[in-house]
């Protein structure tokens, strides 16, 4: 099944529940009407929250840059001895 079909199925299921709620009037209609908006807003909030959390905990590795520079020096030395032309352009 294509992925978009899965997502549409999910949306249809949610809509069905929503229409059910509207019809049965368990909650006052005026509030049920607003549920899709709540849904979209909370989806947006979830997205922003995840991006925010991701940014806060963005894994960085400054020490790796230092280690890489050491590796580069080591590699250049070795290759120069072996006659490989590693002079920077």
């Amino acid at each position: 099944m294509k992925h978009i079909v899965k997502i549409i199925t999910l949306l249809v299921a949610i809509s069905a529940v929503w229409i059910g709620l509207l019809e049965m009037s368990v909650v006052p209609r005026s509030q049920t009407w607003l549920l899709p908006i709540y849904f979209i807003v909370s989806l947006g909030c979830y997205g922003l929250l995840m991006v925010g959390i991701g940014l806060m905990h963005f894994p960085t590795c400054p020490q790796e840059a230092v280690l890489l520079q050491q590796d580069i020096v080591e590699a250049k030395d070795f290759l120069k001895q072996r006659g490989v032309d590693v002079n920077s352009e």
Partner: peptide
């Protein structure tokens, strides 16, 4: 894991792209 040498904009784009993909593509 981790990344070095990215500015805030690049990190933001990367996180945004990742959240989008995780949400829609699983």
């Amino acid at each position: 894991g981790g990344v070095h040498g990215w500015n805030l904009m690049r990190k933001l784009t990367s996180r945004g792209a990742n959240v989008l993909a995780q949400t829609f593509l699983w």
